[in-house]
Each structure stands twice: as structure tokens, then as C-alpha cells.
Design a protein around this nucleic acid. Structure first.
Length: 976
RNA sequence: GCGGGGGUAGCCAAGCCAGGUCAACGGCGCAGGACUUAAGAUCCUGUUGUGCAGACAUUCGUGGGUUCAAAUCCCUCCCCCCGCACCA
């Protein structure tokens, strides 16, 4: 064994031995099994620090369970379906400079390699290879014999089977759905496809149809004018349809040209932009003409709900890109409308043919809000001091009104049958009423504008028609998932409510796409199965993938999957060999269900949910997953990582820089559960030193000859502490608190060991080391294998038994004894520090017998629940030995009772055992002298009387009277 | 807006569910010391304030409350992070 820690050599050596010995390639056996899976990584880049965290947690679980004696299966595969790999291949093929930079500099792809990665296949091949190499480099105990990628023909068969199943079960339905859409690419766009508007949601506006009271067929018309009636509709898009009852006018931008269009047989006037948006909806739309905004001003329209004609007024704030380009005005409740109207007062509108004084326009209030008057818009404007419609404060005023009205507002009498309904409840009810009556439509619009695709095109909301959906909204299905969730372990437990909420919130999800890699829908070949949908139950495929070298793709028939996965049918009637089929079926029954699925927290609202839904749909109860664990992200020096922009730290880079064990230790020890971990190179360096220290310490222990000293109190203490560390570590690992586990298994234990050595302990070192390296093996497997060999053990530490606490070695008295020594040392040091003395000699006085008697009586009283000052005093005073000190007893008892009351039963019992403090301190005298650099003596406070004390200068200040059980009196004699 | 998580000493970060031994684990940084020719490494001590005897005072986002006792329980308010989808 090398006296110097050399991670590179150690790590590659043990990785080779693990691989050669195939110890991580389990077969079914009589042993209890444990099946752990981690979501496979997507192959559009190299593995980074985020993957490192999730996978390392998985590996620790695998290694820990293996050392607990379970037969552990930890497989891995790669995800390639979907669009990003195609997108990346295109960018590389185009020699996009930014992409080339990111992938060479951040992902570490050599210059001569990247040029060849211009096809999806080459990317999958390359990143698959690199990812496996990286995972081997960090020492994961993965069974690589089961590896696959999701574009393998065999996997495709599996996905087809799965979707046919779901289809049969009625979980796949057809429908329409609004998506963000790029008209140029003719494809839905994702966040990372966007130049602007990444945060934009799709909102459902209500489109209210105001009928134009006059015919505008001929006004500024440039169209063919064929086949139209004289009825024109001006639709207004609003998020607050109830305010239709308060409309006083419409706003039209006089400076823009509007489109005349037919929409499902009706004639509408909307902005040019709105027309374009309408063409992507499920409506039949045709442009038939144009009309200038100014030609509409001054005309009147009819409110679709109430018999009330209102005027169209000019407004420059109307944005043609937003909604329909026509806006309804509700000045009582909308600050913009109120201000625009106010600004218009007194203006000459004669050029629009408006002769009426618009000051006469009556505001209509339709919502009553507590603490606000009739016109909340006016109040908000006044409250915030908004000056005019272009004041940025208008936005705030709008929000203020909305918030108050939405939460506390109630509809007034003038809303007819809706009167009395809370504003927060009205939208859906009213909209569906209006749509039914034909006076409104739903119109989808982005919450933020503009939304621009990377190609530069402005995106729209498109209604994708005849789309295939997984009907997650099905209440019965949800109930089943919900019920199963209750039986599962969720780590951390706080996330359970999150899962419950998400199950509740989940709606139908489109599961087919036009573009990307993947499997075609078996019954509708035009569609590709969406890439989250094809990766929900693939954990079962790991069982099959092991045998694919013996099976032809054509043999992977529905009957085959039915048999091996569900046990349906007869093994004799399958395209493959009967024994093989039975073998696979036996494997599945042995390994399934998944015991734990551990993943990053980003997958909670999607993959992990689908994982549950699909399992519940397809598999019987006993095959459903048992636990889900979730961990947080990793940032780099405080900055968020980004695969496509940086900063990025690849797994490979981390391991080659710091070593596998150091990387593992750091990533596991820096955060736990859903907390995000921050990777700081400075801290990693420090970790590196700690690992070295660990190696050197254990190496020394191994090389030093066995100590033949008899065990002392400190040895009992060390072994006792070790048991606590073991328990804490195991308990933490059970719930994947890796940081807590490491605090105990590594740092605190190292701390204990240092104290032990400082106290002169030697004879337990070998025993502790033997436990310690096993305790650390799941976290730092390579170094521990090396030390395990060094300590003289044959075989792999990876297959050794994980340390279990031995209750017989827990020694409370030894711990209390050590506490006494430590506290006494602290006290002495504090005295020296505060008084700035240079000690010549120190005398410790242990408590006199009577005080110990009092304590004992108090403890007994406390145990029987009758700790009471009066009763205790009475009892004590019957003891002549105590009565001798009658003057000091009450004060001591009073303080003591206070202390005893804060102790729980265990502490009380423990203290009842008593401790020979003089013996403990005597054994530590040498230690005290070494630490303090002067002579130290310990005496019983009873042992000397006043004359002795004065004569021998043992205790000239009478310190010994302060001696108490657990707290010896201290006399420090100064040199001066 | 809805849902989830969180605010602890210069920084990171335990503790909070099961109130008391919490001036508050641990680490980093910083300061001092030991060792060394020196540096590094290692070890020790300190790091809210006061204090010439082991103590006291004030602290755990804010303001209240419950309690003999609150970082921990209850309420108010403020602030930060994440998700809200058809995307892996």
C-alpha cells in the first residue's frame, strides 16, 4: 500500500477490478432484492454537475443497500427521443458558431470530433459513449449489461406495446389544444426555442362580440366585396368578461388599418395582427377587406348583453398586436379606460363626426368592493397619483383595482342574473354562458408580448387539431394514483403534498408530435410519441434488455410483452424460446417493482408524475413503485448552470481535476434533499485535503503495530461515540440525508478520533478504522477498497457488511466521564484566559459527599415525579451528614432543582448511575498537565480542612466550596 | 395569482416536526499560538459585547402572543427561490 494517497491510480485500479469481477451485474437469487433507478440522461450534451449529484446519490443508495446484504440492481440507459438532439445536429451541421463554442469549450468535445457530430445518430453514439465513460470514471456501481438507448428498434417495440395498452385502456384520447407555435417553422416552440417571451403563458381571453349598428361595407373597402351581409362584429378580448356590463364605449386606434374577415360565417373587424392569429385557431377565417380605424370612430355598437348602444372612440394606446386590436372601455373599473376618457374630454372630435360632448358619458359601476366607492378606477388613480394614460403608474393602478375586485368584489344588481356572485367565481360561468348564446368566443393569447422564435418569427397561439392526448384528467385514474401515492415512501416527506397537488392539477397532455426522434403511434403513423410519454415504465425494460442478444426485434411481439411484463398468455406460444421467456418473466417478478426512483426536483411535475400514472394504469398493485426520492440542483460558484450557455462543469472535468472520491464526497456533503448545492472550487479543494487526511490517518493506523495497552475510559468513550456515529449515519442514509450522513460518518467521526488521540488513546484505533472505512465505502468506494485491502481484508469492501451499531458498546458513563474532562478543561482555560494568569499549579476539587447525596435524592424524587423543594429539604435534613452543612444546603438544593427539572427521564436515570469523578480526573491528570503546561492535582473537597488549605496553599481562597457534582472546583495558582 | 420551499452570527450551513443542557453542531474565511531554517501541511485557541475565576447581557427576517421557559409552538407583516406544462 502506498503511503501517499494517489487517487488516479487507486480509482482506475478498482474500477477495473469491479468491472472484471462483474460484481455489479446481479442475477436473480434467493437474496432479497433492491431495484433502484435514476432517470436516464438525455443525450444532447455531456453529463454535468447536476447529473453528478443525482447519479451519485443513486450510487450511494445502491452501494449502501448492497452492503446491507441486498441483491441490488442499478441499471442505466440513455434518452434520445424528442427534438433537441435533432436541433443540435442541425446547428452543428450549420457550423453555428455559438453552438460550436459551447460544445467545445463547455462540454469539452475535441475540435476534430465536433465536426462529425452533425447527425442525430452520431450525437447519440458519441454522447452515449462519453456518458458511460464518465459514469465509470466516477465509480458508479451500474450494471452496464442492460444499457440501451430509446431509439433502439427493440425499445420502439416496447413503447408501441405500451401505447397500445394505454389506448386499449382508454387513456389515449383525441382533442384540440392551444400551443405556442412558430408559423415559420410550423412547429410548437419550447422555452429554449425562443428569443423573447420565455415566460409567456397562454391565457384564455373571452372574445365579446359587439355588433356594429351601422353598415360599413363600403367604407374604405378594397376587397372583392362578395357575399356578405351588412352585419359586422367588433370582437373585444378581455380577461374580465363580467365587466361587459360596465362598457361605456369601445376604443379603436384611428391610425391603423383593420382587417375585415369572415370567421365561421360571421363578419368581423379586427386588427391585421389579430386576423393572422385567428388563422391559427380552429376557426375558418378569410380576409375579405380592410377598413381604416378612423372610419370606425364615431360609429356605435351594440352591447351583446344589455340593450345599450355605445360609441366607438379613438385611442392611441390600443395595441393592434394585443387581443383583437379592439378594446372595450369600462372606465368605472379600469384605470386605463378612465384616464383615456378623461384625457379625451374637451378634445374636438368633430373630424370623426362626433358632435356629442363625451363628458356626458356615464360611467357604469357593476362591482361592489368593501372599502371602495362606486368607481374603484378613480380611487386607484387618485390613490397612486396617476397623471395620465401614459403614466407607468397606470399599470399599478390596474393591478390594485384587479386585486381588490377579484378577491372581495361582488357583482351588482345591474348584472342581472349574475348579481351577488363573487368576482373570483364569475369568469368561467359567464364565459360558457356567453359562448353558448353565441355572443362570445374563447380566444387564446400570450400573457406577455411579443413571443419571438429563434428564427425571428413572431409566434402565435395555435390550436392543434385532432391531437392525441393522454387523459390524465380522468378522475378515476387520478384517484388510483392518489391512492397508490399514499402507500409510497416520498423522500423528503415534505414533498408528498407537492405530489398530491400536482396530481390534482394535471390535465390531459398531448402525447404526439410531428417532429423529432421517437416511436410512431402504432395506430396513427403520422404522429411520433412524445418523449416524456415514451419514458414512463421503461424501468421494466431493463429486465428485458439484458437478454436482447438472444432475441430478434421481430420476436418482440405484443404477446411477448404481455407475457413477460404482465404474466398474460402462455410461454409456449411465444416467438421466442419457452425457457428464455420464462426466465425473463422470472426476472421481472424478482426485480419488479422499482424499490426507489431517485431524481432531480425538476422532474416532479412531469416525468415522476407520468411514471406513477402509467405504472398505475398498466401494472398490478404489487408491481407499483415503492419510493420516490427527490434532490435539488447544483449551481457553480453561485451561478445557475446552463447546458447551452454556461457556466457548466462536466462530470468528467470534475473527476479528472479532483478525483472520483473527492467529487463524490463533495457533491453529497454540501447539501441534501431539495436544497440546491453550490459547487465552489475552494471548498472542493478543502475536501480534497480532508480525504487525504483520512487516507493518511487510516494508513498510519494500519501500518502501526497493534497497541497492547489496556483499554482506558477514553477507549470506552471512543467505541461508544462510534456506535452513535454509525446509528446516525444509517438513519440518515435510510432517508437519503447524505449531508447528515457524511457529517457523522466522516467529519464528526474524524473529530472524535482526533480527540481520542489527543487524550492519549491508541488501543482502539484499528477497530475504529475497520469500521470507519466500511462506513465510508458507499460515499468514497475507491479509497475505501484500497484501505480495506491495506487493513488485510480479502475481497471487496463493496460486498462487505455495512457497520451496525452495537448497543453493548454504548457507554453512557464513559461519555459522561469524558464530558467532565472536557468541561473541566474548558473551564480552566476560560479562567486562565479571563484572568490572564500564568498557572504554576492547578488543583481540582471534586464535590463533597453531601452534595452527591443531595443530588441523588433529588434525582430519585424527580424519577418518581415528586421533585419538590419543601419535601426534599425535610427529607434531607434527617440525614445527620447533611445537617452538618445546614447553612449551605437550601441554596444548593434550590439551584439543583432548577437543573434537574430540565432533564428528561433518560438523563435522570443516567445520572443516577453515579460517576467516580475523582478517578476520572485522576486518569486525565497527565492529559491536563500536557494541555496546560503545569502541575495538576485532584482532591476530594472533603479531604482537607481549612487549616490544611491555608497552610499548604492548596486552596487559599476556599474555592473548594464551589465544587458540585459534574463540576469540580478549580484553584489556579498564579506564578506571580 | 395559485402551489411548494426558505429567511440562523463575515460567508456556507445544522437546529425547528417531539420548547429547556442553544451564544446556538460543523465547515470556510479571519486573528493568535505550537511545530518548521522558511513556506506549505498539520495541530491548538479565539472569532456578539462586557468581564483579572469558570459568569453575565443581547441575539436566530419583522411585530405581537402562548409558556416558568421559544431559533423551536400560534398569529401579523416583509423579503428571497422554484414550478404553473406539452419541454427534455
Amino acid at each position: 500500500m502506498n503511503p501517499r494517497y494517489n487517487p488516479r491510480t487507486i480509482e482506475s485500479e478498482w474500477q477495473r477490478k469491479w468491472d472484471e469481477s462483474r460484481i455489479f451485474q446481479p442475477d436473480i437469487s434467493d437474496k432479497e432484492k433492491y431495484f433502484i433507478t435514476i432517470p436516464y440522461p438525455y443525450l444532447n450534451g455531456n453529463l454535468h454537475a447536476g447529473h453528478t449529484r443525482t447519479f451519485t446519490i443513486g450510487d450511494v443508495i445502491a452501494r449502501y443497500r448492497r452492503m446491507l446484504g441486498l441483491n441490488v440492481l442499478f441499471p442505466m440507459a440513455f434518452h434520445a427521443t424528442g427534438t433537441p438532439i435533432i436541433g443540435l445536429a442541425e446547428l452543428i451541421a450549420k457550423r453555428d458558431p455559438e453552438t460550436l463554442r459551447v460544445y467545445t469549450e463547455l462540454h469539452g468535445i475535441p475540435d476534430d470530433v465536433i465536426a462529425k457530430l452533425d447527425s442525430p445518430e452520431s450525437l447519440v453514439e458519441y454522447f452515449g459513449m462519453e456518458s458511460e465513460a464518465a459514469m465509470r470514471l466516477i465509480g458508479y456501481s451500474i450494471d452496464w449489461t442492460r444499457r440501451f438507448t430509446t431509439i433502439d428498434p427493440a425499445y420502439t417495440k416496447f413503447v408501441e406495446w405500451q401505447f397500445n395498452k394505454l389506448h386499449e385502456l382508454g387513456h389515449i384520447v383525441k382533442g384540440s389544444h392551444p400551443v405556442r407555435w412558430c408559423p415559420n417553422d410550423e412547429n410548437p416552440v419550447e422555452d429554449h426555442d425562443l428569443l423573447h417571451g420565455e415566460g409567456a403563458n397562454i391565457l384564455d381571453y373571452t372574445l365579446l362580440k359587439f355588433k356594429l349598428a351601422s353598415d360599413v361595407s363600403d367604407v374604405s373597402d378594397v376587397s372583392d366585396g362578395s357575399g356578405r351581409s351588412d352585419e359586422w362584429i367588433l370582437p373585444c378580448a378581455t380577461l374580465r368578461p363580467e365587466t361587459v356590463f360596465g362598457v361605456t364605449n369601445l376604443w379603436v386606434n384611428p391610425d391603423i388599418v383593420h382587417a375585415k374577415v369572415t370567421v365561421n360565417g360571421e363578419q368581423w373587424i379586427v386588427s391585421e395582427e389579430a386576423y393572422r392569429k385567428l388563422t391559427h385557431t380552429d376557426k375558418v377565417v378569410r380576409k375579405i377587406g380592410e377598413i381604416k380605424g378612423e372610419d370606425l370612430i364615431g360609429k356605435t355598437v351594440e352591447n351583446p348583453l344589455i340593450n345599450h348602444n355605445v360609441l366607438i372612440l379613438p385611442a392611441n394606446f390600443v395595441d393592434p398586436a394585443n387581443g383583437s386590436g379592439i378594446v372595450m372601455s369600462v372606465p368605472a373599473h379600469a384605470p386605463y379606460d378612465y384616464l383615456a376618457l378623461r384625457d379625451l374630454k374637451g378634445a374636438n372630435l368633430g373630424k370623426y363626426g362626433i358632435s356629442d360632448d363625451i363628458s356626458d358619458l356615464k360611467m357604469i359601476s357593476l362591482i361592489s368592493v368593501p372599502d371602495m366607492g362606486e368607481f374603484p378606477a378613480i380611487e386607484a388613480v387618485d390613490e397612486l397619483g396617476v397623471s395620465n394614460q401614459s403614466d407607468p403608474l397606470t399599470e399599478q393602478a390596474t393591478k390594485l383595482v384587479y386585486r381588490r375586485e377579484f378577491h372581495n368584489g361582488v357583482l351588482k344588481e345591474n348584472t342581472g342574473k349574475y348579481a351577488g356572485i363573487a368576482v373570483s367565481k364569475i369568469k368561467d360561468v359567464l364565459t360558457s354562458d356567453l359562448v353558448e348564446r353565441g355572443v362570445a368566443d374563447i380566444f387564446y393569447e400570450f400573457s406577455e408580448l411579443p413571443v419571438v422564435c429563434r428564427c425571428g418569427t413572431t409566434c402565435v397561439v395555435k390550436m392543434v387539431k385532432d391531437q392525441w392526448f393522454v387523459n390524465y384528467s380522468n378522475p378515476e385514474w387520478k384517484d388510483q394514483v392518489y391512492a397508490h401515492l399514499a402507500d409510497m415512501q416520498i423522500i423528503p416527506e415534505e414533498l408528498r403534498v407537492e405530489f398530491e397537488n400536482k396530481i390534482d392539477w394535471l390535465k390531459d397532455k398531448a402525447c404526439a408530435r410531428r417532429k423529432g426522434l421517437g416511436t410512431r403511434l402504432p395506430w396513427d403513423n403520422e404522429w411520433l410519441i412524445e418523449s416524456l410519454a415514451d419514458s414512463t415504465i421503461y424501468m421494466s425494460y431493463y429486465i428485458i434488455s439484458k437478454y436482447l442478444d438472444r432475441i430478434d426485434v421481430s420476436q418482440l411481439t405484443p404477446a411477448f410483452f404481455d407475457y413477460v411484463l404482465l404474466g398474460k398468455g402462455d410461454a409456449r406460444n411465444l416467438p421466442i424460446n419457452e425457457d428464455l421467456a420464462k426466465q425473463i418473466r422470472a426476472d421481472l417478478k424478482y426485480w419488479y417493482p422499482v424499490d426507489i426512483r431517485s431524481s432531480g426536483k425538476d422532474l416532479v411535475p412531469n416525468h415522476l408524475l407520468f411514471f406513477l400514472f402509467h405504472h398505475v394504469a398498466i401494472f398490478p398493485k404489487e408491481m407499483l413503485p415503492r419510493a420516490i426520492a427527490v434532490n435539488g440542483f447544483v449551481s457553480l460558484e453561485g451561478a445557475k448552470m446552463s447546458k447551452s450557455k454556461g457556466p457548466l462543469l462536466t462530470l468528467k472535468h470534475a473527476v479528472t481535476t479532483y478525483g472520483a472520491d473527492v467529487t463524490r464526497l463533495y457533491i453529497l456533503g454540501t447539501a441534501e434533499h431539495t436544497q440546491d448545492a453550490d459547487w465552489r472550487s475552494e471548498s472542493v479543494n478543502n475536501n480534497q485535503k480532508q480525504v487525504e487526511k483520512f487516507y493518511n490517518l487510516v494508513y498510519r493506523v494500519i501500518s502501526d503495530p497493534e497497541a497492547d495497552e489496556p483499554p482506558k475510559i477514553i477507549d470506552k468513550w471512543m467505541m461508544s461515540r462510534l456506535q452513535h456515529r454509525i446509528s446516525e449515519t444509517r438513519e440518515a442514509l435510510e432517508v437519503l440525508r447524505t449531508r447528515h450522513a457524511l457529517q457523522n460518518a466522516f467529519y464528526l467521526l474524524m473529530h472524535d478520533l482526533k480527540w481520542y488521540q489527543r487524550r492519549g488513546g491508541v488501543s482502539s484505533l484499528k477497530a475504529v478504522a475497520h469500521v470507519w472505512i466500511r462506513l465510508m465505502a458507499p460515499f468514497m468506494p475507491h479509497i475505501c477498497e484500497e484501505l480495506w485491502k491495506g487493513i488485510g481484508e480479502d475481497g471487496f469492501i463493496s460486498l462487505s457488511e455495512y457497520p451496525a451499531p452495537d448497543p453493548n458498546l454504548v457507554d453512557r458513563c464513559a461519555e459522561r466521564a469524558e464530558e467532565l474532562v472536557e468541561n473541566t478543561l474548558d473551564d480552566i482555560e476560560e479562567i486562565i484566559r479571563v484572568t490572564s494568569m500564568k498557572p504554576e499549579r492547578i488543583t481540582l476539587f471534586t464535590a463533597p459527599a453531601w452534595k452527591n447525596t443531595v443530588l441523588k435524592q433529588a434525582l430519585i424524587a424527580s424519577r418518581s415525579g415528586k421533585l419538590d423543594m419543601g419535601a426534599l429539604m425535610k427529607e434531607l435534613m434527617q440525614d445527620p451528614e447533611i445537617k452538618k452543612h445546614a447553612r449551605d444546603v437550601p441554596k444548593f438544593v434550590q439551584q439543583l432543582i432548577k437543573d434537574v427539572r430540565t432533564w428528561d427521564a433518560a438523563q435522570v436515570n443516567n445520572r443516577l448511575e453515579g460517576l467516580d469523578e475523582r478517578a476520572v480526573l485522576s486518569e486525565a491528570l497527565e492529559f491536563f498537565e500536557r494541555e496546560l503546561g503545569c502541575a495538576v492535582a485532584v482532591l476530594d473537597a472533603d479531604a482537607i480542612d481549612a487549616t490544611d488549605a491555608a497552610r499548604d496553599d492548596l486552596d487559599p481562597q476556599g474555592r473548594r466550596k464551589f465544587a458540585e457534582p459534574g463540576r469540580p472546583a478549580i484553584y489556579v495558582k498564579d506564578t506571580n
